[in-house]
């Protein structure tokens, strides 16, 4: 089975690289909420996707989680 986002092999939908990026995106969410006081999940994903500092795999995952 292929990863949803790349050509690599995946166990449950995502390859290990995108799986790791997903964990990073999820674990940074509370930090963003704390920093701004409040932030919706979808708005957060948009911000992460747009940010120039975000890594390629994390960007791809943010788009994927948002359902783009």
């Amino acid at each position: 089975m292929k990863c949803h986002l790349c050509e690599r092999e995946a166990v449950s939908g995502l390859c290990p690289y995108h799986e790791a990026a997903k964990a990073r995106v999820q674990s940074a969410y509370p930090l963003w909420v704390r920093a701004y006081g409040r932030m919706e999940w979808n708005e957060y994903l948009d911000n992460v996707k747009r940010n120039v500092q975000t890594g390629q795999w994390a960007k791809e995952i943010a788009g994927f989680l948002k359902g783009d």
Partner: peptide, 12 residues
């Protein structure tokens, strides 16, 4: 490379 590609920035 993995650190770069997985990176999620945090605001400050």
């Amino acid at each position: 490379e993995k650190e770069v590609r997985e990176f999620v920035p945090v605001p400050f």
